[in-house]
Structure formats: C-alpha cells, structure tokens
C-alpha cells in the first residue's frame, strides 16, 4: 500500500500538468480579451483546439527528415519530464531525486534544442528566422535563470526543488532574505516571459512574419504534431508559473500526505497559478512587443537583478 502512494502522486501530477496547461493558456487569452473590451473565446477553447488538431491529418513538408516528426515527441517528453521533477501541490514530489533544478533547466533546454532543429528542417526562411531568434533569446535567458535559482537555493541550502519548497513552506513569519528574494523573483519573472514567449519578447497571438519567434518555428507543423508542440508550449508555461508560485509563495502547499492537506494544497495551487496567469495577461496587455535587439537589454537587466540577489543574500544580514 505504502509503495503505491508515490506512483499515484506522480500520475496525479502528470494528469494535472496535462489537463491544466491548456486552461492557463485560455485564461491568459481571456484576460487579454477582457482588457481589450472583447468577450473573447471560451476558457476551454484551447482544449477544443487541441482535440481538433489531434483529429486532423497532418501535412508534412517533403524536404524534412525524421527530426521533423520526432521533434514534437521529444519536445513534449522533455517538457513533461521537467514538470514531473518539481513539486506542484505537494512539497515532497516523489521524482525529486531524479533531478534538481539545474536538471530541470537543462531538460527544458533539450526541448528548445529540438524545437530549433525542427524550425530549420523544413528549409523555409521563416523557420530559420524563428530558430535563430529562439537561440539568442534562450541563450541570454540562461545565465540570469541560473543565478536567480542559485540565490533561492542558497536560502534553502539546497538545489533540490522539493527541499527548497518544503523548507520555505514550513518557515513562519519573517522571510529570511527579502531583498534577495525580491530581486530573484523579478529576474525569474523576466526570464519566464522570455522563455515562454510572452509579450515583450514574443507575441504568441501573432502570425506576422517580422515579429514571430515561436510561431515561426511551428509554421510547417499541422495536425497531431502541431497539437503536441502547442501543448508542450502550454506545459512549459505552466512549469514556469508553478516554479515561481511554489518557490516564492509556497504558502498552503501540502507539506504532508494527509488528505486534507492535499486538498488545500491543490486548491491553493490552482488559485495561485490563476492569479499569476492574470498578472501575465495584464502585462501582455500593457506592453508592446520589444524590438528583437532590445530583448538583450531586458535579459541583461534580469541578469543584473539576479546578481544583486546573490550579493544581497551574502551581504544583507538584516
């Protein structure tokens, strides 16, 4: 009996990631629509989109190789695997031992690598352009992400996500290093916007040639392959949102396996993710997309913020 619990937890977490991610995408779209005084599509539209795409016959470019058809599965797999490594609604996630936060970052990078290759495979200039831009954005986001992660990890004395979340969830009253946390949060938030292709960096709603990044890479995809790619993008967004809410605001997460704690943890988690999605929707409505060569400045700022987080962690004793 006892040995069943971890397996059940993993399966539940997997199901939650798969089921919730289209909803988050839909929620952000809804928020944007409301802010633009539109009614917007239903919150559940992304589910319908996915179902539709899965049932369509895909058209594959005749210039492509097996990379093109394998890439969606690899991107999907790496994103899902990354999602399974982190605590979602229970602070002790069973697969925690398999990879710490660096492994999570590199798993996502595996997806990015194959996404870039997929963009190049069809041989269209759009795909190449998208891949090239994705490469620079992903590159510049990496150092900021690593440093901000480290300054969080230092607070908990661990780079294992479960330990980080568990410790900060158990902490009561005063947070240990507020300035450091604040900076790291800001840095990680910017990185999230860049990595998941949200507005100041990329516009997920556009098919305008000159501005697209993620969409440009997916241009040749259709049918189930497109569905998997879109789903993976949704899961990636959810992974980053979960990371932020659980690391910086772990309050309410289930620290034990009591049914009541899990129920509370689940509800609180849903609320927090929805709130963060709301924030992202508002930000997307407030800002215009940046020119590509302004993005390095933004990510440079994120790097500086994460560096300050580190400096403050060591120097500000409070």
């Amino acid at each position: 009996m006892q040995s069943f619990i971890p397996i059940v937890l993993v399966v539940v977490q997997l199901a939650l990631l798969l089921a919730l991610s289209p909803f988050v995408v839909g929620l952000i779209r809804k928020v944007k629509a409301r802010l633009q005084c539109r009614r917007g599509a239903s919150l559940f539209q992304p589910y319908a989109d996915l179902a539709k795409l899965f049932r369509k016959q895909p058209v594959i470019s005749s210039t492509t190789s097996w990379i093109f058809t394998a890439a969606p599965y690899i991107v999907f797999a790496s994103t899902v695997a990354a999602g399974l490594l982190m605590p979602v609604f229970v602070s002790h996630t069973p697969l925690n031992f398999a990879g710490n936060i660096i492994a999570l970052v590199y798993l996502l990078a595996l997806g990015t690598f194959f996404l870039i290759l997929a963009g190049l495979d069809a041989g269209s200039a759009f795909g190449g352009m998208g891949s090239s831009r994705e490469a620079i954005v992903a590159t510049l986001a990496e150092p900021a992400m690593m440093l901000s992660i480290l300054s969080i990890a230092l607070t908990a004395g661990s780079t294992n996500l479960s330990t980080i979340v568990h410790q900060s969830a158990l902490m009561e009253g005063v947070v240990v290093a507020p300035p450091a946390h604040l900076m790291a949060l800001a840095a990680l938030f910017i990185v999230t916007l860049a990595e998941t292709g949200r507005v100041p960096v990329d516009n997920p709603a556009t098919h305008l040639e000159l501005t697209m990044i993620h969409e440009a890479m997916l241009l040749e995809y259709s049918g189930r392959y497109l569905a998997l790619m879109e789903w993976a993008a949704g899961i990636k967004l959810l992974v980053f949102l979960t990371l932020i809410v659980n690391v910086f605001a772990p309050w309410g997460i289930a620290t034990s396996l009591a049914p009541s704690a899990i129920a509370v943890g689940l509800l609180v988690y849903l609320g927090k993710v929805a709130a963060l999605a709301l924030v992202i929707g508002v930000i997307e409505s407030m800002f215009a997309k940046l020119r590509l060569f302004r993005v390095p400045e933004m990510l440079g700022a994120a790097f500086i913020l994460s560096l300050l987080a580190l400096v403050f962690f060591y120097t500000l004793k409070g």
């Binding site: 997997l14 969606p72 599965y73 690899i74 999907f76 797999a77 790496s78 899902v80 695997a81 399974l84 697969l95 925690n96 031992f97 398999a98 990879g99 710490n100 660096i102 492994a103 798993l107 004395g157 661990s158 780079t159 294992n160 998997l228």
Partner: peptide
Amino acid sequence: FSSISTPVLAMLLVVAGALG
C-alpha cells in the same frame, strides 16, 4: 543538497514520449 539520476531521467523521457 542536490541529486540527479540520468537513468531515471532517460526513462522519464521515454515514458513521456510514449505517452505523447
């Protein structure tokens, strides 16, 4: 402090890919 297990990661990737 930290841990990884590449066999498990590889297995996760395979399982998740198979799921897709």
